[in-house]
Each structure stands twice: as C-alpha cells, then as structure tokens.
C-alpha cells in the first residue's frame, strides 16, 4: 500500500516535471501554457494582490449554497421517497436517465425567468448535484437491515427519529458518495454557468482572461479551482475512511 501511494505521487510529480521542462525549453510556447512553477507564483501574486478575491468569493459562496441545498434537499427527498414504494418505482427510471439531460442547456431559460444573477447559476449547480445525492442516499437506505428497523420500532422511535438515528447513520457511507458528487457538480454548475453568461465569478474571469490572452490569470484560476475541488474531496475521503474502518469495511 505504501509503495502504491509513493508510485502515485511519483507519477503526478513526473507529469508536472515533464510539463515544466517542456515549457522551460520552449517545447510548449508561453501563449499555450505556462510552466507549473510560474502558475504557482502567479497564483500567489493574484491572491495577495486581491484583485480577483471578489470573484473567487462569489463563485465559492454560490457553489457552497448550491452544495448545501443539493445535499439537504437530496437527503430529505430520498428519505421521503423511500417510504413510498410506488412513487419510488415511478421515479427510479427517471433518476437513471436524469444525467442524460444536459442541465446547462437550461441556463438561458433560467436567466430569462430569474434574471442574470446568482439564482440561475445556483439552480443549475443544485440540479446537477441533487439527483446524485438522492440516488446514493436511496441506495444506502435500501441496504438497512430489516432487523435494525425492527429495533428502532421496539425502541419506540418515530419515523423522523428512525431516519435520523438509525437509517441515515447506517446509510452514511453511501450518502458520502453522493456528497462527493455534489461538491464536484456544484463547482461544475457554477463555473460552467459563469463561462456561458455572467458578469462575475471565477468562470467569468477565466473566460475573460482567455479572450485577452492573459495566461498569467487564466492558469492560476484553473489551478485554484482544481485545488479547491481536490481538497474538499480529500477531506470527505478522510471522513469516509474513518466511517468505513469503524465498520471493518476497510
């Protein structure tokens, strides 16, 4: 296991190193790509100058709102659907085909309805994430052993208490899978919308920098998005490993 991790880090470092060498030697010209070391330095300067902080904050707060909504609404909806088998049966095929819909295509429509502000972007990001949370939560709830439900009834728990104290805790590892999706989708939804049409946000700034051949802004912003997404995912991964190892599943 130790060796595998080392190999993984070595592979990533090798790729970054290769990119660095290619950029430094002129294998890749500076209009196409910046050297990774320069991207890092630019990112530091960008953050310390603070000129894009408002856009970064805007994107992060919109993504956070969409993420929290997708997770909370997704879990509540899953719990409700789970108690109604007929409704569940009716909805299951719709969930299965949901991700065939290009949700971003609805963005112009939402702008017409809600105006060019935060709401259409949050809605897009929410719509992308919520079904992943619902589907994964339902998957977890399906696996709760009947004997645990019986134990909850014997302990005289109400349906809400049963969900909060028995079925959702049991389903936690599955819900976490949905939550990880929700993080990625929240960022995709917000930044994607900002690319298409927006007056601020990281996606807007990336697109603006692209149009102005401003690689010194574009690449650091892309790196920042990647870093945020990966760190959030890693934090959840640590939590997930803790839960799974308690259950002897790791």
């Amino acid at each position: 296991m130790k060796w595998v991790s080392l190999l993984r880090v070595a592979l990533i470092l090798a790729l970054v190193g290769l990119l660095e060498v290619l950029c430094r030697t002129g294998g890749i010209d500076t209009f196409t790509m910046q050297a990774p070391s320069k991207i890092l330095v630019d990112l530091g300067q960008m953050l310390s100058s603070g000129k894009l902080n408002a856009s970064i904050a805007k994107t992060m707060s919109n993504a956070s709102i969409a993420f929290v909504l997708a997770v909370s609404v997704g879990i509540v909806v899953a719990v409700l659907i789970h108690t109604k088998p007929t409704l569940r049966e009716a909805l299951d095929p719709l969930f299965a085909t949901y991700y065939a819909i290009p949700v971003l295509a609805f963005y112009p429509m939402f702008i017409i309805i809600f105006g060019l502000g935060n709401v259409p972007k949050i809605l897009i990001a929410f719509m992308l994430g919520v079904v992943a949370v619902i589907v994964n939560t339902l998957n977890g709830l399906d696996r709760v052993p009947r004997v645990l439900i019986k134990s909850a009834r014997i302990a005289r728990l109400s349906p809400t208490q049963t969900a909060l104290k028995v079925t959702l805790p049991f389903a936690a590892p599955f819900i976490l899978t949905g939550v990880k999706f929700a993080i990625a989708y929240a960022l995709i939804g917000i930044i994607g919308s900002e690319f298409i049409m927006s007056t601020d946000g990281m996606g807007f700034e990336i697109a603006f920098a692209y149009n102005n051949f401003d690689n010194a802004t574009m690449y650091p912003l892309i790196l920042l998005v990647v870093l945020v997404s990966i760190s959030a995912n890693m934090l959840l991964g640590m939590w997930e490993r803790k839960i799974l190892s308690r259950r002897g599943l790791l």
């Binding site: 208490q161 104290k165 028995v166 259950r247």
Partner: peptide, 25 residues
C-alpha cells in the same frame, strides 16, 4: 424488550453507545 436472531447492533456506534441507545431515547 426483544433480542433478534440477526445481528442488530448498530455498526456506527461503539459498544457503550449501542447499549445506551434506548436509554438516550
């Protein structure tokens, strides 16, 4: 009180928390 044949312990709670489950309720 009921004890079932199947394992009804809650895997996300430790032994003490499992035993205290009904008391907390």
């Amino acid at each position: 009180g009921v004890v079932f044949q199947e394992d009804a312990s809650f895997p996300w709670l430790n032994v003490s928390e499992n035993i205290a489950f009904g008391l907390a309720q």
